Structure formats: C-alpha cells, structure tokens
Amino acid sequence: MTVHIAAKWHTVSEVAAMLGYGLSKTKMLIASEQIRSVKDGRHRRVLPGWVDEYIQRRIDEAA
C-alpha cells in the first residue's frame, strides 16, 4: 500500500516551478512581500493558499 502525504507548505524553488518563474524572480516576489512566506530556520516556506492569493491578485490586476 502506498501512502501519499500532501505538502503543507512549499519551498521557494517549488513555488518558482509551480508559477513557471525563475528562482531569482520568485525570491524577489517573496522579498517584496508580493508572495507571503514564513521563515523556518534558515529557509523560507510558502503555504499553498498564499500562492493562490498571488495568482488571484495577478488575475484581478489583468481584468
């Protein structure tokens, strides 16, 4: 039996891959707080809902 565990949060590189952005652009979006994140030790983590919020804002801006 295979157990699938869904990620509760994403790394910056995972967010970059999801959005189709480069790592530098994603880091800039996080540093400028356009994408929310939390510091976990030395790393930044992004909740899935925060990625959705960013995408929704981009859609709203385009409308």
Rank of each mutant, 00 (worst) to 15 (best):
M1A: 15
M1I: 07
T2W: 12
T2E: 15
T2H: 13
V3D: 11
V3T: 09
H4D: 08
A7C: 04
A7V: 03
A7D: 10
A7G: 05
T11W: 04
T11G: 07
T11E: 04
V12K: 06
S13Q: 13
S13W: 06
E14T: 04
V15C: 05
A16I: 03
A17H: 11
M18V: 07
M18I: 09
L19G: 05
L19A: 08
G20P: 00
G20K: 00
Y21N: 12
Y21I: 04
Y21C: 11
Y21M: 14
G22T: 01
L23A: 09
K25C: 05
T26P: 05
K27A: 11
M28Y: 12
M28Q: 14
I30L: 14
I30Y: 01
A31I: 07
S32Y: 06
S32K: 11
E33S: 07
E33D: 08
E33I: 11
E33V: 15
Q34A: 08
Q34L: 12
Q34K: 14
I35G: 01
I35V: 03
V38L: 06
K39S: 08
K39R: 15
D40P: 06
D40L: 15
D40Q: 15
G41K: 03
R42H: 09
R42M: 08
H43Q: 13
R44M: 05
R44T: 02
R45G: 03
R45Y: 03
V46G: 04
P48V: 08
P48G: 04
D52I: 12
E53L: 06
Y54H: 07
I55H: 03
I55M: 12
I55E: 15
R57C: 08
R57M: 11
R58Y: 01
I59G: 00
I59V: 13
E61D: 12
E61K: 12
E61H: 05
A62F: 02
A62M: 09
A62G: 07
A63M: 14
A63H: 13
